[in-house]
């Protein structure tokens, strides 16, 4: 049996390698150069970071790796195809999940081994996991406006859970007189919850139902801002009530999360449907934001950055809609 699994791993690995090389060949050279530089810089940073090996850090690695792996989603048609062949779904998941262990290996080899073990277990779990039911019951979420996108609805269970957790941590922060904990969870938690929602992948059809780009732009911005406010406002009010001396910082965090969410939204659609590119460029934009925050020039550069991003975003949406019209004709 083990030789058969090895054969299947080799088979799917060769296939993935072929696809990767061919996709790479199709990419413009500046993109490849940019990705190479980015990977080198990230690798260097990871190699330089020194994290002590403790059971806590190993547990964090396992949780972080599992979270990253859970973001790897196969289309149901792909799952059906791979399920037809013994162990192929497991092997495919294993290869993908083991690839995600590379940053952990760069950080610390023991972290890498921990992530590898998690990868194998999680791949086994995912391949045995049953298919999602075709008919899913839509439960309205109090955290989203009525006509929200379907990809918002996908997060209808996770978002309320995240909201409750943030609230609990804010209260714990207040009870322990730990303002830092409350602020980190309030800002970071809401930002992560909203960004995870925005980055949910949807089909091209969800854009192509719009008649023009103006309608799409208006709708997405309104929904992003509204959903962020609905999610954050009650938490912000609790924060102001518990930490009345820091109300200006709370308002600043509130405004920053809205700005960052708009940044996430525009980056997503500026390069849509190339999600892998978005997942690289979004962290880069965050680093850029961090750099801007350290200089007074950030006040000037930030609007310029947003103006450029909006232009790309608008252009890409128009391109998608125009292609759709061409298909219709």
């Amino acid at each position: 049996m083990s030789s058969f699994i090895y054969k299947q791993i080799l088979l799917i690995f060769r296939l993935k390698r072929t696809i990767f090389i061919r996709l790479l060949k199709q990419m413009p050279l500046p993109y490849i150069a940019f990705l190479f530089v980015l990977a080198t810089v990230l690798s260097y940073i990871l190699l330089k970071i020194d994290v002590p090996t403790m059971w806590k850090s190993l547990l964090t690695v396992a949780v972080a790796h599992t979270f990253l792996c859970s973001q790897v989603q196969y289309r149901s048609e792909k799952v059906w195809l791979l399920k037809q062949y013994s162990y192929l779904l497991f092997c495919s998941y294993t290869i993908d999940f083991v690839l995600i262990t590379i940053p952990f290996f760069l950080l610390n080899p023991i972290f890498g081994i921990t992530a590898c073990v998690t990868a194998i277990f999680y791949a086994a779990f995912r391949s045995l996991l049953l298919q999602k039911p075709k008919i899913s019951i839509v439960v309205p979420s109090p955290f989203f406006v009525k006509s929200s996108f379907l990809w918002h609805a996908q997060m209808r269970y996770l978002i309320p859970c995240a909201w409750i957790l943030i609230l609990i941590f804010v209260i714990i922060g207040h009870l322990n007189d730990n303002t830092n904990l409350a602020f980190v969870v309030f800002g970071g938690g809401t930002f992560l919850a909203c960004v995870a929602t925005i980055f949910q992948s949807e089909k091209l059809d969800f854009i192509q139902i719009y008649t023009d780009e103006k309608q799409f732009i208006k709708r997405t911005i309104i929904e992003t801002v509204l959903n962020t406010i609905i999610f954050m406002l009650p938490l912000a009010m609790v924060m102001i009530f518990l930490f009345p001396d820091n109300q200006w910082i709370i308002l600043l965090v509130f405004a920053s999360v809205i700005l960052l969410n708009i940044n996430a939204l525009w980056i997503k659609y500026a390069f849509f449907p190339a999600q892998s590119l978005v997942l690289v460029l979004f962290p880069v934009s965050l680093v850029f934001f961090g750099a801007l925050a350290t200089t007074i020039y950030g006040l000037v550069l930030l609007p310029i950055y947003y103006a450029f991003l909006f232009r790309f975003y608008k252009k890409n949406i128009r391109k998608i809609l125009m292609n759709d019209e061409r298909i219709d004709n």
């Binding site: 299947q8 088979l11 296939l15």
Partner: peptide, 25 residues
Amino acid sequence: GLLTANPYIFPRVTGHEFIRFALSA
């Protein structure tokens, strides 16, 4: 052998390569 209503295909793989893959698997 199951032919699904919406069959999946791997990107950038030729028809012949897919058949070879399906047979090896």
